[in-house]
């Protein structure tokens, strides 16, 4: 495995007096998909949110490419560490409008390429985003995240509510993403079969701590 793209070093995080993460240490190596697994409430989503600084740790360090993310401009960090949420979040307007939020200067060809990466047709650019099916919306959101040119992708159970075809498209897009330029993905999933299909390794959380690590 290559050097880690992301690292968490003894990270603690609490909300409303309740400690959610109790000293998490893990690494997300380049060129691989790391699956983050564990029961609901074990702190998986929090780990993702700490990686692109939607949250900040109470103590410990989160590093991206060896540098403490606290030292990055949040806007730069988030373009380098993209995120796909569990529920798709389409913005108002067309698919083109949505993609241009991530890449304001991109032409239609570039936007069509982005859609192709998630197995959506270029003809969808003019469609209203709030009329897409759940699977189409989630794939559009993934294309939107990829348009910022991230080196790392954070995926928070993005396929948990999708049909098989959409799930396969998302999995293929992420596999293609990590296959180039030493990119990496950290994928939260409850689905052992999915971890087996997409993951190179898994990290299990339990009660806010790393409980186990191993092959996916």
């Amino acid at each position: 495995m290559s050097a880690p793209r992301l690292e968490l070093d003894d990270v603690r995080w609490s909300r409303s007096g309740r400690e959610i993460l109790r000293g998490v240490t893990l690494a997300v190596p380049a060129g691989a998909v790391t699956c983050l697994r564990g029961a609901s409430g074990s702190g998986k989503s929090t780990v993702l949110r700490l990686c692109n600084r939607l949250e900040v740790p109470d103590s410990g360090v989160v590093r991206c490419d060896g540098a403490d993310v606290a030292g990055w401009a949040a806007t730069d960090l988030r373009r380098r560490v993209g995120m796909a949420f569990q529920q798709p979040v389409p913005f108002a307007g067309t698919v083109r409008d949505n993609l241009r939020v991530a890449a304001p200067d991109a032409g239609d060809d570039a936007l069509a390429d982005a859609l192709e990466r998630v197995a959506l047709p270029a003809s969808m650019l003019g469609a209203e985003a709030d009329r897409l099916s759940g699977g189409e919306a989630q794939r559009m959101c993934l294309a939107r995240a990829l348009l910022t040119g991230p080196a790392v992708l954070l995926l928070d159970e993005p396929t948990s509510a999708l049909d098989e075809a959409s799930r396969d498209a998302v999995e293929a897009a992420v596999a293609a993403f990590v296959a180039r330029d030493d990119r990496a993905a950290l994928w939260v999933t409850h689905d052992a079969a999915q971890a087996g299909r997409v993951g190179d390794r898994s990290v299990w959380l339990r009660d806010g701590r790393v409980h186990d690590r191993g092959p996916a």
Partner: peptide, 20 residues
């Protein structure tokens, strides 16, 4: 909240994220 965070996660500055 979800939409604003999704815009932040795309690297938008907070002023741009909340503008619409």
């Amino acid at each position: 909240r979800r939409e604003i965070e999704a815009r932040l996660a795309l690297g938008l500055a907070s002023r741009r994220a909340i503008r619409p």
